[in-house]
Nucleic acid binder design. Structure first.
Lengths: 143, 143
DNA sequence: TACTGATGATCAGTATGCGCACTAAATGTC
DNA sequence: GACATTTAGTGCGCATACTGATCATCAGTA
């Protein structure tokens, strides 16, 4: 049952992330971290584009951004050229949080595949990428 | 980023499941299906054991069972020997729902990996299993 | 310019998914 | 048999996820 394995794999990945970040006193979810990263690499991005980049659901992203704004990690302001769009920028607080989180997240990722040989990790990633690429449109959720 | 791939893979798996079941007029989530299956194969199982078997969280299983009971697919009764435990049994309605769902779920699973060669599917499953086995205890959530 | 269609965001509703705390009941120990 | 510990379920709270609907705004066109 590939579906069940997919669920377990994801579940373990999240559990490791929570473990590591919590231990470090960070209050960040995997999703929030990914969003933060993407905002840093794309300053002034709007929510819809952000959602598209990481394959989020458009509705979900609202809440995620809400919480990041509440924590003072990013800023959300209405675009001058398109008054529908909300543009996101990383704040200093977000920058420093990312600096702390980066090595922790890297360690969590390493722990996830620590049962595999490096060559196997390579293989696994390649195969998962292939699946995601071939079926990615099913869940792109452009809506 | 293995974590991100894990998330995408799981997301796509769920999306395919929803697509297929919805098309067939079924109102079942992947979780509900897994629970139903496990109850069929283990009549009279209690919720905690069920949760352990499929690596659910103890809290989550309550809601899942609630909805399955509401739909008339399974029955929940208090155990005679242990008045804390709630024993679960598949009802006729659940049996017939599973009969309809089984081929649909199989198709969804096949679609998920349709971009891979059979040998690659084998590889992918083996590697994911290895990861889950080596790290499974992190999220067993015995709590 | 008035109209149509597309787009960004939000809201309501449903379902996971998990931590924490609590009750009730069972079990182990003295 | 009294008591501490463990265990099964549940309640509460928070954070994804996604569908469907709605609102405001923007862009293209007649």
């Amino acid at each position: 049952m590939p579906g069940h394995l997919a669920r377990r794999f994801h579940q373990i990945s999240n559990a490791l992330f929570d473990l590591e970040t919590r231990e470090a006193g960070l209050s960040l979810t995997p999703i929030q971290y990914a969003a933060l990263l993407t905002v840093r690499d794309n300053p002034g991005i709007d929510q819809a584009t952000l959602a598209g980049l990481i394959a989020y659901d458009r509705t979900t992203i609202g809440g995620v951004v809400d919480r990041l704004v509440e924590k003072g990690l990013i800023a959300r302001r209405t675009s001058d050229t398109d008054r529908r769009a909300k543009l996101l920028t990383l704040l200093d607080e977000g920058e420093s949080t990312l600096a702390i989180a980066d090595p922790i997240v890297r360690r969590a990722q390493e722990n996830l595949v620590q049962g595999l040989e490096p060559a196997e990790v390579e293989q696994l990633m390649k195969l998962m990428e292939k699946v995601v690429e071939s079926m990615g449109s099913v869940s792109r959720s452009g809506r």
